[in-house]
Design a protein around this nucleic acid. Sequence first.
DNA 1: ATTAATAATGAAAATGAAAGTCAAGATCAA
DNA 2: TTGATCTTGACTTTCATTTTCATTATTAAT
Lengths: 172, 172
Amino acid sequence: MKMKVKIKNKKEVSPERLSKRIKISPKNRNGLERLLKCQAKRGLKYSKKRAAIIEYFIKADRHYTVEQLYNEIKEIVPNIGYSTIYRTLRLLVDCGMARTHHFGETDTRFELVHKEQHHDHLVCEKCGRIIEFTNNGIEKFQNAVAKEHNFLVKNRELQIFGVCKRCQQRKR
Amino acid sequence: MKMKVKIKNKKEVSPERLSKRIKISPKNRNGLERLLKCQAKRGLKYSKKRAAIIEYFIKADRHYTVEQLYNEIKEIVPNIGYSTIYRTLRLLVDCGMARTHHFGETDTRFELVHKEQHHDHLVCEKCGRIIEFTNNGIEKFQNAVAKEHNFLVKNRELQIFGVCKRCQQRKR
DNA sequence: ATTAATAATGAAAATGAAAGTCAAGATCAA
DNA sequence: TTGATCTTGACTTTCATTTTCATTATTAAT
């Protein structure tokens, strides 16, 4: 008779092995570690397609919609399904390797998490370009407001909408 | 034979008449004016249900999802349809009497526009409360960032997520 | 290398919010 | 009161996202 083995005692997948398979630049190493831990904890297996998506997403380092990423990935990995993109991005978000935004659009945008500091976004309403910026001034401001309201800050999201330099130049 | 009358030459609906029907506090008078102009421009007619929704929305002055507003309105106006809520809120947004937000949720939230100054939001992740605040400091900051990037600012949206005073007090 | 267990995949169906359609009812100027 | 036209609720449609499921791939243990 067989014992039912519960999902609890999963063995950790060797990080060395997987990091050999997913080619990642050093600066994303810690992100990858998190991913591997996350995979191990859930008993996920390695998969070529997932690895390809993750590699691509990390290298491109842009603010992708699922559709955009799908269109670019399918050139590299034929037969890739829409759901796999969705699933992989969700995995990255759950592992803390990605983050979502809604820049006034209907589609969700996914952004790689690899910077130490918090950053915010300038969103061009003409061309859709997204420019990241950091500014320490806002921290002070934010803390002042929070204090005033006895509010415990966990996170913030600031978008500045407008017209980027390039779109201003090429008038109309 | 009949001439096709184009939507162009609509007569303006008398504001006095309509403002008698939609009961509004003085501070929302200018919002209402805008709505009436908007109605007139589009040749919209008066309707009890729309008026009821608008009155309710203005009086409550909260950040409603369509679902919330629907649930509350249907107690007052039986038989009200979901679509009517959607349509009315869209009308308010088009007229500039309301504004939408996405506070990290899937549902859109609608907020009454009646304050002169731009304001931002503290969003409590425990109870969902939304606290408005204004702070002039951020303007300077915003303008500095924009200048740095030669970015023409049209609008901004800042949310600070965390735990509100009340939720901090009633621990766990 | 083979196998047995189980995760990953793509296609298709399901879901959920938001928008559109339409026949019946309401409003308005004349 | 009337005729033109707007509004409504119920229904359908759309679109992004999630789930389902039968098939394929990966893994650890043989």
